[in-house]
């Protein structure tokens, strides 16, 4: 069986990586980081999946999925949000100083 969930999340990570390296706009780069983050979180959640199982809450009859990845991803999401908030505020700061978000213009690279 091919694990579509795994492949899809890894594809998200690869797409995010591509955006971070290829794009020259700060907001796009930050979005790329976010896509990578989402990919890893999805991957983690799908590791904990058990076929025909439900959420691990006791008043629902089992079987349950693995609760640990969900708990870890909850932490990872909050961390991702924090990094995004800081990255965006740094981008705002760069915009205030230079008036642009294009890396080539900021660094004075000639095309």
């Amino acid at each position: 069986m091919i694990q579509y969930y795994y492949l899809g999340s890894i594809a998200l990570i690869a797409i995010g990586m591509y955006i971070v390296i290829a794009k020259r706009n700060l907001i796009k780069i930050i979005l790329g980081l976010d896509i990578m983050d989402t990919g890893v979180n999805l991957l983690f959640i799908s590791i904990g999946y058990v076929k025909n199982a439900t959420a691990p809450i006791e008043n629902v009859p089992g079987p349950y999925v693995d609760p640990i990845p969900q708990a870890l991803v909850l932490t990872a999401i909050v961390i991702g949000v924090s990094v995004m908030a800081l990255a965006l505020s740094i981008a705002i700061g760069i915009y205030k100083k230079t008036g642009t978000l294009e890396l080539d213009e900021i660094l004075g690279v000639k095309k």
Binding site: I13, G16, I29, L33, M36, D37, V83, L86, A87
Partner: peptide, 10 residues
């Protein structure tokens, strides 16, 4: 630092 650090933590 943010960009490389986030890739690292991923």
């Amino acid at each position: 630092y943010v960009i490389i650090g986030s890739i690292g933590s991923t």
